[in-house]
C-alpha cells in the first residue's frame, strides 16, 4: 500500500467528522442560545434550572456522557451510532455554548436594554433588535474556540464505531502496523479542519465588527 492510499483511507473519514460537527455544533448553538435567553431573561427559577443543566453537563467527561446517552437513547429509539454520537456531543456543547451566549448577553444587556426600553421598545423587541445583534458579535471569539473543541471532540464517536478519521487511523494502523504514521495523518487532518474553521470565524468576526475610530 503506498502512502497516498494510506492517507486517502484515513481522510475519507473526514465526511463523518465534518458530519458530526455540523450536527453537534448547530444543535448546541440552538439549544445553548435558547437556554441562555431563559437563563438571563427567564427569572430566578429558570436561571437555577439552567445553572444546574450547565453544571451537570460540564462536570462529566464527554465520552462518559456519550456512552450514557447512546445506551439510554438507543434502548428506546432506533438511532444509528452516528446520530446518537452527534446529538450527544451537541448536548454537551450546548452547555458550553449556553455559557458563551449568556456571557455575551450579560455584557450587552443592562444599559443597552434600558436605552431601548426608554425609546418605547418592548422587552422582546429590545432583546431582538438591540441586545442580540451586539451579543452575537461578542460571542464569536469564544464561540470559535468552542467550534474547535467540537471538531476535536467529534473524534470521540469512534468509540461507538463510527468510521471517522480516528477510527480509520486506528484500523489502518493496526492492519499495516504503521501506527505512528496513521495517527500523525489523523492529527494533520484534524489540525487542518480546526485551522480552516478558526480562520473562517476570524474573518467573520472582522467582517461583522462595528466601525469605530481608533
Amino acid at each position: 500500500m503506498d502512502f497516498s492510499q494510506f492517507l486517502s483511507y484515513i481522510a475519507s473519514g473526514t465526511v463523518y467528522t465534518v458530519g458530526v460537527t455540523l450536527i453537534a455544533l448547530p444543535a448546541g448553538l440552538l439549544i445553548g442560545t435558547i437556554l441562555a435567553l431563559l437563563y438571563v431573561y427567564g427569572g430566578k427559577v429558570a436561571a437555577r434550572v439552567m445553572n444546574l443543566y450547565s453544571t451537570v453537563f460540564r462536570g462529566i467527561p464527554p465520552l462518559v456522557l456519550l456512552f450514557i446517552l447512546f445506551f439510554a437513547v438507543t434502548r428506546g429509539v432506533n438511532l444509528s451510532a452516528f446520530w446518537a454520537g452527534s446529538l450527544s456531543l451537541g448536548m454537551v456543547s450546548s452547555a458550553y455554548q449556553m455559557e458563551i451566549v449568556r456571557g455575551a448577553l450579560l455584557s450587552v444587556s443592562g444599559d443597552q436594554l434600558m436605552a431601548a426600553r426608554a425609546v418605547g421598545l418592548s422587552r422582546l423587541q429590545a432583546i431582538r433588535y438591540v441586545v442580540l445583534p451586539q451579543a452575537v458579535r461578542l460571542a464569536i471569539p469564544p464561540w470559535s474556540n468552542e467550534a474547535a473543541i467540537v471538531i476535536k471532540d467529534s473524534s470521540l464517536v469512534y468509540a461507538l464505531g463510527v468510521p471517522e478519521i480516528l477510527r480509520r487511523a486506528q484500523l489502518i494502523g493496526a492492519s499495516s502496523q504503521r501506527y505512528l504514521l496513521a495517527y500523525l495523518s489523523a492529527a494533520i487532518i484534524y489540525f487542518l479542519l480546526v485551522y480552516a474553521t478558526t480562520r473562517l470565524l476570524n474573518h467573520l468576526e472582522q467582517k461583522l465588527s462595528i466601525p469605530s475610530n481608533p
Partner: peptide, 26 residues
C-alpha cells in the same frame, strides 16, 4: 415610554447601529 423622551448621561446609543439607525429604530 413612547411619549417620554430620555437622554442619558452616558449617551447609551445602540452601538451596532449608525446614527440614522439609532434614530430610526423606534
Amino acid at each position: 415610554r413612547q411619549h417620554i423622551g430620555m437622554v442619558f448621561q452616558n449617551f447609551l446609543l445602540f452601538n451596532h447601529l449608525t446614527a440614522l439607525g439609532n434614530v430610526k429604530l423606534g
